[in-house]
């Protein structure tokens, strides 16, 4: 049976490794991929009046940039891989949004790369991978 695998992708080396790993899984089990790019965004941040005015235009620009510079390079890789796939771009808290995508699409697994920051910063702020491991509704594969 063909399942859907969500891959959290941000264009980083770590996320490319996660994608490659997900591709090999999908090829052997004839699964399809959903490549999700989440733009970090909080509706509770504070903006100045001119930022408010500009927001809609900025959002369009951000999405366009993500499309060309983040999702663009993936397309080539996916053509070679020759497996069914979709892409999605969302705004929000990264871990929460990936969970929501997985739920909506009834995905079987989430694949995510690990930045490998074992240091002080991730102790304090947490990491996407760690959060996801705690809250995801489906199994999470964390690729080193």
């Amino acid at each position: 049976m063909s399942r859907k695998l969500v891959v959290g992708f941000d264009g980083s080396d770590a996320s490319l490794r996660a994608l490659d790993f997900a591709i090999t899984r999908a090829q052997t089990q004839s699964d399809s991929l959903l490549i999700a790019h989440v733009l970090e965004w909080s509706p509770y941040s504070f903006l100045t009046p001119s930022e408010l005015e500009d927001r809609h235009r900025r959002r369009k620009e951000e999405l366009q940039r993500a499309e060309t510079s983040v999702m663009g390079p993936v397309m080539k890789r996916m053509e070679i891989a020759n497996i069914p796939f979709e892409t999605t771009m969302r705004y929000g808290h990264i871990a929460e949004t990936l969970c929501r995508v997985a739920k909506e699409e009834v995905a079987a697994m989430i694949f995510i790369g690990r930045m490998g920051n074992s240091g002080f910063a991730s102790r304090i702020f947490g990491s996407v991978a760690a959060t996801l491991a705690q809250v995801a509704p489906v199994p999470v594969v964390i690729v080193p």
Partner: peptide, 25 residues
Amino acid sequence: RGDYSDPNDAGEVSHFQALTTALSG
């Protein structure tokens, strides 16, 4: 609180942001 905000509109100015910006004025 965003209870009525469409998740697909995320990334646009939220009600909270408009309120806080107006309030800071």
